[in-house]
Design a protein around this nucleic acid. Structure first.
Lengths: 124, 124
DNA sequence: CGGTATCCCCATTGATACTG
DNA sequence: CAGTATCAATGGGGATACCG
């Protein structure tokens, strides 16, 4: 393979690797979706319960993100005909396929905090 | 353990799991950082080379994201005293610790596209 | 080549209040 | 309780030009 071919090949390899990651990021983007999924990993929960377990999230964002997660079939939404209203959110089978991603992200977050953020006393 | 204790325990468990993921998301947030790291995983590259391999990124965003990645010690920046200027970016050891995260994200992106996006003919 | 400077738009997010 | 409505701020990102 001549150097020029190698360059092209390399570039194609690169795209093939980037595109699936872009797909994943598209679905999981933002600060809230993975935390929501983690909150639900401990069992089905109601709107307020999720809200309480994710510091900083507003009702608006939670509502919006839940809709996105449902549209991508990562969670399910069940409405019970009661008053006051009762709605339960749960992880789907497809949502559970994210555990490995979440675990790696969690491990990395821990080691990164040790390495980088641990130095900076002023950081949260 | 009484039910009340279990609730508290559950909630604390939840936080302990969410926080490291939040740390990780803080560092990796946005559409560009992981694609940049993937581009560099094939070897050190110059500004324009990275730019060419990541569809849609502008010089401004690339410049900004490279700075963030360098600040978090995920990449290194080397300036050669030439004219026209030559600057090379490379992954650091710490940056390489992200491979497992990227690999899981990539695998998940592929399977998610098959499951969800594959249905929708009109999607990119 | 490897960026920075400036201007500008608009989508996302946040804060607060409110409703069935 | 489970959200929605409304308004305001923030900043992501495009276009263009420029510099060492």
């Amino acid at each position: 393979m001549c150097p020029a071919d190698k360059k092209i090949h390399n570039s194609q390899e690169c795209s093939r690797n980037i595109m699936p990651v872009r797909d994943a990021l598209e679905v999981l983007n933002g600060r809230w979706k993975l935390p929501i999924l983690i909150a639900l990993s401990f069992g089905k929960k109601r709107f307020k319960e999720i809200s309480r377990e994710i510091p900083g999230i507003t009702d608006k964002m939670l509502s919006k993100e839940l809709k996105m997660l449902e549209a991508n079939e990562l969670i399910s939404r069940t409405v019970y005909d009661d008053f006051p209203p009762v709605v339960e959110y749960d992880i789907t089978k497809h949502g559970e396929t994210l555990w490995k991603v979440i675990e790696e992200l969690r491990n990395w977050g821990i080691s990164h905090r040790k390495k980088i953020m641990g130095k900076k006393v002023e950081m949260v």
